[in-house]
């Protein structure tokens, strides 16, 4: 994928398929230690331990429309290419946590990309709440759909509201010097 934000979208899509109600996404640009860390945690149905052992194998999938599952294996490949790795922790009935680590300045690392587009797209997927945290060294930007809902009510899928959210996130990441396109 051309952007880390597209991987995030794809991994969060697994969470939605797993019936998650809450998704927590964190992007941590630890430039001091030259690490980009991405964490996605959900409260979906979790992964069976026998699947979990091989979950990043492309031939492991529970989907019925085709025989390969690409999302996790693609993201893992991208991490490994950048001297990092991907880990998946999960407990049936509780949820799943995906952590991806990449070397920040690795030449093959995709740019973080349009996080705001990913979050807005995820909001359109149904009844989920998304909490997003972006860190650049010690600077932090946070966004939570639950906070937005306090102001505008539960229906945040109107185009004007989504546009506001998009611009709010873009601005927030820019304010902490998030390296979105580098």
């Amino acid at each position: 994928m051309r952007e880390i934000s597209l991987h995030i979208m794809d991994i969060a899509q697994n969470s939605i398929s797993a019936g998650a109600k809450n998704i927590y996404i964190e992007v941590y640009e630890n430039i001091n230690e030259n690490i980009l860390k991405v964490t996605i945690i959900d409260d979906g149905k979790g992964i069976d331990s026998d699947i979990l052992d091989n979950v990043t194998d492309p031939f492991v999938t529970s989907r019925k429309t085709r025989k390969v599952g690409l999302g996790l294996s693609l993201f893992e490949a991208a991490c490994k290419r950048c001297d990092g790795g991907l880990s998946v922790k999960s407990k049936l009935g509780e949820g799943t946590e995906v952590t991806a680590i990449l070397k920040y300045d690795h030449i093959d690392r995709a740019p973080i990309g349009r996080i705001s587009d990913t979050i807005v797209s995820l909001i359109l997927s149904g009844d989920i709440d998304i909490k997003y945290k972006h860190r650049v060294n010690d600077k932090i930007f946070e966004f939570d759909t639950k906070e937005i809902k306090k102001t505008v009510g539960d229906d945040i899928k109107e185009p004007e509201i989504l546009r506001w959210i998009k611009e709010y996130i873009d601005e927030g990441i820019k304010n902490i010097d998030g390296g979105v396109w580098e």
Partner: peptide
């Protein structure tokens, strides 16, 4: 919006529709 859709450019399509 599965992996195949996202890789093929579904996100900009979705956002263009919203727009």
């Amino acid at each position: 919006m599965a992996t195949c859709g996202i890789a093929a450019g579904a996100r900009p399509v979705l956002l263009a529709i919203m727009d």
